[in-house]
């Protein structure tokens, strides 16, 4: 397993996935280079979540290949824990641990999983909370924070594991409109720092601004993709056009 940064950090090739009889992914391929930000858009139920959940092996696939830094994910002997240390994930519903404070949420995995020193982990966690603009909220429990604040804690929690790539699954979809901006800003900061990001999103303006490449999925296939300038201006496929006209 020798991976060099000139190769794709995440390489998805002809991935098929079904839940029972339901075919959800029908041969999806895409590459993500180090430092790239890609956005996946598409109608609800088209398999976007399933696709990115396959990248950190939350879902397994039946056919095809997913390489993360050269490591094959579609492998019975895969060390899932090692893979997940490299791949961070943020969910639509935040999924913070409600019985832990914001600070504990962020520092727990580094201490328990990576066996980092507690004092150092706490310092790192405080710095991360500051970075996502939540200084002063360290002792707050998730239930005491707004949706936007919780989502930023979730981002900090993921970053604390020092991942090489981050997956975002519609992370602003459950938020009140007034807190969407602060979360998008946090992701933008991250992207500017050079973090490799795979985003599923319905925020077209944001995708246009931040993405290096946009993918449109429908019924388990990638219908069309391209750099945001051309993708949003002159989409070729009628399905893409219809979707964009409904959303924009």
């Amino acid at each position: 397993m020798s991976w060099s940064p000139s190769e794709p950090m995440v390489s998805i090739k002809d991935v098929h996935k079904s839940f029972g009889d339901l075919k959800v992914l029908n041969g999806v391929s895409l590459d993500v280079m180090k430092g790239d930000v890609i956005c996946i858009i598409g109608p609800s139920g088209s398999g976007k979540s399933t696709l990115i959940r396959c990248v950190n092996a939350l879902n397994d696939i039946q056919q095809g290949s997913i390489l993360v830094e050269g490591q094959e994910v579609n492998d019975l002997h895969l060390n899932k824990l090692e893979l997940r240390k490299k791949v961070g994930m943020v969910f639509q519903q935040y999924n913070l641990f409600p019985h832990k404070t914001a600070l504990q949420n962020v520092m727990m995995a580094p201490v328990r999983v990576l066996k980092h020193d507690k004092v150092e982990a706490e310092a790192t966690a405080r710095a991360l909370l500051k970075k996502v603009r939540l200084e002063g909220k360290e002792a707050a429990f998730p239930g005491e924070l707004s949706g936007g604040q919780q989502q930023r804690v979730a981002i900090a929690r993921s970053l604390a594991m020092q991942p090489d790539v981050m997956l975002f699954d519609e992370v602003t979809a459950a938020l009140d409109p007034e807190t969407v901006g602060e979360v998008l800003q946090t992701i933008k900061d991250l992207a500017e720092d050079g973090m490799t990001c795979i985003l599923v999103t319905h925020e077209m303006g944001f995708a246009r601004e931040i993405a290096d490449h946009v993918y449109f999925t429908d019924r388990g296939v990638i219908v069309e993709h391209g750099p945001p300038e051309t993708f949003f201006k002159d989409a070729k496929d009628p399905r893409t056009r219809e979707f964009l006209s409904q959303i924009l």
Binding site: N56, L58, K80, L81, E82, R84, K85, V87, G88, M89, F91, Q93, N95, L96, F97, A109, R112, V113, A154, R157, S158, M161
Partner: peptide
């Protein structure tokens, strides 16, 4: 408990 708790923990590489 919501399954999201398991998934969040899994994605953070907890055993």
């Amino acid at each position: 408990l919501p399954s999201g708790q398991w998934e969040a923990a899994e994605s953070l590489a907890y055993t």
